[in-house]
Design a protein around this nucleic acid. Structure first.
Length: 448
RNA sequence: CGGGGCGUAGCGCAGCCUGGUAGCGCAUCUGGUUUGGGACCAGAGGGUCGCAAGUUCGAAUCUUGCCGCCCCGACCA
């Protein structure tokens, strides 16, 4: 992509309303634009990151055996009357009437609808287990939206639902999602810690929140330091095999959000040096809630013993749009974002120090074409701006690699490459730079 | 929902108390000098001062109502 054709409205000054670094950087880097309280437009750069995150979530859901579908954003109220949640959900649910005065709502979540869809198509325990998910926009009329997309009213969420014949099988589904989440967040360069959590209005008896540690997190958390560097299950993990040992490993050490925190247990189970009390961002939440919806909504299957039993359900959410903020919180410096390659809007920024200069342009065009041909995503700054400005904005948007072409390097037959993550600068021969960077990018994308 | 605050050029703000020509920095446009970490000089364009009503000879400024947004608290991906 040539920057001259792109839409990248960067802000030099920090907008007054942005309180946390991820919000500030998203506004300054031209990723989002606020259209109302808790409502944001995704500008081209932000949209690219959102799509990358979404795709990682999708790949790990598929790998765990979940099946993708898409449910509508607008739902009929009657569905929610069946579960009793139409009244229970309160003002957080955006209620709408259509032209015929039918009561509708903009979905804050989809348990009711997926249960309705499931019961229409499944009759026997032999059809189980099933895991269905979608990645769809939700609307929750939050009392107080804040921190940009971190707590927006409209947000993109992956929600998965599992259906099993009994509790044992249900827990197997829960375990699959547990492992899937560990991998999902790890691939984005995040260390997410599963913590025992309350079940909230969705209900149930088994629940974990996946928390990213960050100073600006909304919840206080307490955990054993040992969780931070625990090895995440590899790509080769067999999701049909026994995952219980992994779950036990990750739940063996103390970790709880403040609602579930037990100071006595914390101090008795965790050595003083390993006690970590911090703040965290919730990026995922998994529940097993059994018959909570299947019973009132009559989602039943024929059981092996004859007769009908309500299916055992779980639901599993990932805040896809929130993850952008969480990733920036974890990867940035004073100059801007430092995207992990897996979610970077582009892999490489190509800087022409002297636009309009024949040899510089020629060298840039050559490298640009070679990188694109190698499947590397390049943002080529072909604008007439001065070098300093180009450096500053590349640092701000935070692409993993910057390749600089200027008269100085050309004389030596070299391009300068900067790694945004560690700031390290190297010189590489002009005819090798594209292939070397392409190789690095490929390795980083193949990780996990 | 309770408490606090804000709304003036694309962005950041001053002006309001004490009513009288709407201003500054950045950005933008033109010309020139520059060009390896957000350049300099000269010139130019850009505003229903959130909306409405009222007070007044006169309102960005005072009064009232409305709308929008932000921050602090209890809920949530």
């Amino acid at each position: 992509m040539r920057l001259s054709r792109y839409y990248l409205p960067l802000l030099k000054e920090t907008p007054a309303e942005a309180q946390i670094v991820s919000h500030r950087l998203m506004l300054r880097a031209g990723m989002i634009r606020q259209e109302g309280a808790g409502i944001y437009a995704w500008l081209p750069l932000g949209f690219r990151v959102l799509k990358k995150i979404e795709q990682i979530v999708r790949e790990e859901q598929d790998r765990a055996g979940a099946v993708e579908m898409l449910m509508p954003t607008i739902q009929p109220a009657d569905l929610w009357r069946e579960s009793g949640r139409y009244d229970a959900y309160g003002k957080e649910m955006l209620r709408i009437t259509d032209r015929a005065d039918r009561e509708m709502l903009y979905g804050p979540t989809n348990e009711e609808m997926i249960t309705e869809i499931f019961r229409a198509g499944v009759r026997s325990y032999k059809d189980l287990p099933k895991m269905l998910y979608h990645i769809q926009w939700k609307f929750r009329d939050e009392i107080r939206p804040r921190f940009g997309i971190m707590r927006g009213r409209e947000f993109l969420m992956k929600d998965c639902y599992s259906f099993d014949v009994d509790e044992t099988a249900g827990r197997r589904s829960y375990n699959k999602m547990f492992v899937s989440y560990l991998r999902t967040f790890s691939r984005m360069g995040l260390k997410a810690i599963p913590m025992r959590a309350e079940t909230g209005p969705i209900g149930g008896d088994l629940s974990h929140e996946f928390i990213i540690l960050a100073e600006t997190g909304e919840s206080a958390v307490f955990c054993d330091q040992g969780l931070i560097n625990m090895a995440v299950p590899p790509k080769s993990t067999d999701f049909e095999g026994d995952l219980q040992p992994v779950i036990e490993q990750f739940t063996s050490l103390y970790a709880a959000t403040d609602e579930m925190h037990d100071e006595e247990e914390f101090t008795s189970r965790v050595n003083e040096n390993d006690r970590l009390s911090a703040r965290g961002i919730e990026v995922g939440h998994i529940f097993f809630f059994g018959e909570k919806y299947s019973k009132p909504m009559k989602a039943v299957v024929a059981s092996p013993e004859g007769g009908e039993v309500p299916v055992q359900m779980g639901s599993y959410g990932v805040g896809v749009s929130r993850l952008l903020g969480a990733i920036i919180e974890a990867h940035h410096d004073d100059a801007g974002c430092k995207w992990p390659t897996a979610v970077a809007p582009f892999h490489v920024g190509l800087i022409n120090m002297r636009s309009g200069d024949g040899p510089c342009e020629e060298a840039c065009e050559k490298i640009y074409a070679a990188l694109e041909a190698a499947g590397v995503e390049v943002l080529y700054d072909d604008t007439p701006a001065r070098g300093g400005e180009k450096f500053a904005r590349m640092d701000l948007i935070g692409l993993p690699y910057q390749i600089t072409i200027g008269p100085r390097g050309l004389e030596a037959g070299e391009a300068e490459v900067k790694s945004r993550a560690d700031g390290e600068k190297t010189s590489i021969a002009l005819d090798k730079v594209a292939s070397e960077i392409a190789a690095k990018v490929k390795v980083e994308l193949d990780y996990a």
